[in-house]
Each structure stands twice: as C-alpha cells, then as structure tokens.
Amino acid sequence: MKIKSFKVEQWMNDYENDAVYNLGETCIDSMTLKELLELSGRNAEEFLASLADKRMTYGYIDGSPELLAGIAGLYKEVHTNQVIPTHGAIGANHQVITSLIEPKDNMVSVMPTYQQHYSIPESIGAEVRPLQLYPENIFLPDLKVLRSLVDKDTKMITINNPNNPSGSWIPLDIMKEIVKIAESVDAYILSDEVYRGIAEDDSYMPSIVDLYEKGISVSSMSKVFSLAGLRMGWIVSKDEGVLQACRRRRDYDTICCGVLDDLFACIALASKDKIFERNRKILNQNRAILDKWVNETEEVHYVKPVAGTTALIYYDKDIPSYDLCVRLIKEKGVLFTPGSCFELEGCLRIGYAFDSKTLKEGLDKFTEFLREI
C-alpha cells in the first residue's frame, strides 16, 4: 500500500523539539498525573504508590465497564456496547476508514481537515471528493456543493467538528441538512470530534451520533481532556454494521488498549466537569489574547475560532507557509504549523490552548519576525 507522508505529523516530528514557544501544540494545557488525581479528589502519593501492585496484563479486551460507561456519558442515549476503545483518535479514524471503505467507493471529505480523512481512503484506491471550506463562509460546508458531490456510490461523508485547523463549529441546522444529504444516498457520516466537548457557554455540543443512525463519532482523551499521553481514543456509533466491521479489524490492529491508559481515562471521565471547568477558563482566556493580538497586528487577519483549540492565521508576506515557518522556528524559536500541511497557502495554524505566558511571548516574537522580513 502506498500512502502520502502525513504532513502535519512529519512537521511536528521534525521541529517540535526545537521550539522555545510552541504555538503548534493543539492540546489544552496538558495535565500532570498529580493534577488529574487531585482534581478527582484522590491523594496522589497514595494512589500512585498503589499502582506498584497493578498487574500488567491485557486487561479488558473491549475496555473496562467504567471506561465504556464514561465514554457513553459524553453522548445522548449511547449504550456501552456502542463504544469501541482505540489507540487514540488516530487509531479510531484509521479503523473506521479501513473497515468500511473499499476501492470501488467514493467519499466526500471536508478540506482543510486532518490528513487521515483523505490520504487513507486514497491509499485504498477509493475516490476522495474534497468539500472545500472557505474563510468567506466562516469555514462552514456549502450544502449546495455537498449535494453535487454525492451519488449512489458515495459510501461516506467525513467532517471534522469542531474543525481542525480553522476552529469552526457547524451549527445544528446545517448538521441536520448534512444528515439529509447523507440519507439521500445511504452514506455514513464520520465526524472527527476530538475538539468537541467544551462550549464557551457550558452548553451540550451535539454529536453526529445524536443526529444520525449511520453517524460515527471519533474522539479521544488528548485534546479537551488534556491527556494526550494516555493514547486513548474511541469509536461511537449506533449502527451495528459499523460496530461489527470495526471490531473485526480491531483484532488485527489493536487487540486492546493499555490497562493504565484505561485506568486514568476512567478517572478523568468521572471528573469531566472539573476538567472542563479548568479547560474552559484556559480556552476563553487565550482566545481573547489571540483575538486582541490579531486586531492589533496589521500584518495578519483571521476568522475568529468559535470552538476547539486551533485557528488559521493569514499573513500578508509573499513567502510560502512552509518556508516562513522554518525561518520562524530557526530565527525566533516560535513553532506554528504551515498552512501547506493542510493543502493551504498564505496562512499557518496556531494552537492557542496552553499557558498564556507562552502564547503572548510567542505572538510577540511572531510580530517581530513579520516586521523584520
């Protein structure tokens, strides 16, 4: 199987360790195990000491009952037997696409998005039809264009909601129309929802599985739970065919997730209200910092993100995004992600959900850089 290099991940592998100001990070300020345990009301020292007697077996092959219940609780009317744990959301996306897509199929993928959604089906031999999102439409899907892209051979529509890299969130009325379009050709909708969960106003953010029987939600503990080190993700669907297909493939590429990953994910899921309260404060504070900087910096503009942890910053310099970002990390120690990693130019992706001091200092360094070139 031939597959394209994963541009975002290759970029991070090459340059993340060189960053003084890491504005490429997309997780909300990662927690220590001590912080997680204290948020959950446990004595960190006593709990971690008790792990010395934890037997390192395979554990629950399909996920512990507590884990499945915790994940199901992130949705409306989802049962534990409709949850499949995976090795991160990256494992979940891969498992869904390789389980359901065949060379004879076509599928529609929003663009920009996480590269798995178009490069994996292309490697299988399926036709990928891009649904381009534009800043002029605040990075929301054009329903008329989507209708023109589907036909009887369309197996799946993939969305990324909230969107990475733009930070857009598809309103409920548009989501319902996307469901109608999928229903018209009996297609699945795969929704990558790793940034879903923390709304500015503390309201529930609807998932595709709340709206569509053939909807498939993928998410993880990495972004909104601040626990990327657990490498715990999941697939949720109410479609029995999807669940059966993914479980069959899971025997080949997953078997089970780690017992410690399961354990700490259970603790976090049981404490989600406290974690979301912590992380909502970080998001709201840092979005305000980013917005103020954009409004005060003549050389840049953007569509203000409304969800997630990322935004696309457009700049006014005549330089390719990859070259700009290489110079920026080497000259100022600031890491962004080039727009070219998302098949875009004239822009870069920022992750703004870590500590505010690093964000402010990194943005100031970027302003210096723009004015020097």
Rank of each mutant, 00 (worst) to 15 (best):
V236A: 05
V236C: 03
V236Q: 01
V236M: 06
S237F: 02
S237P: 01
S237H: 03
K238F: 08
K238R: 13
K238S: 12
D239C: 14
E240G: 02
E240V: 06
E240W: 04
G241C: 04
G241L: 00
G241K: 07
G241W: 04
V242T: 02
V242L: 01
L243K: 06
L243H: 09
Q244N: 09
A245F: 05
A245K: 05
A245Y: 05
C246G: 05
R247Q: 01
R248G: 06
R248H: 07
R248T: 04
R248M: 03
R249G: 08
R250C: 03
R250Q: 12
R250V: 00
R250E: 06
D251R: 13
D251Y: 11
Y252S: 05
Y252T: 14
Y252R: 14
D253T: 13
T254I: 15
I255T: 12
I255A: 13
I255H: 14
C256Q: 12
C257T: 12
C257K: 00
C257L: 04
G258Y: 08
L260F: 15
L260D: 12
L260T: 12
D261H: 09
D261A: 13
D261I: 00
D262M: 11
D262F: 12
D262P: 04
L263G: 10
A265E: 01
C266D: 10
I267F: 07
A268M: 14
A268H: 02
A268C: 14
A268D: 05
L269D: 10
A270W: 09
S271Q: 00
S271N: 10
K272P: 12
K272H: 15
K272W: 12
D273E: 15
K274T: 11
K274L: 15
I275Q: 05
I275K: 03
I275W: 10
I275R: 00
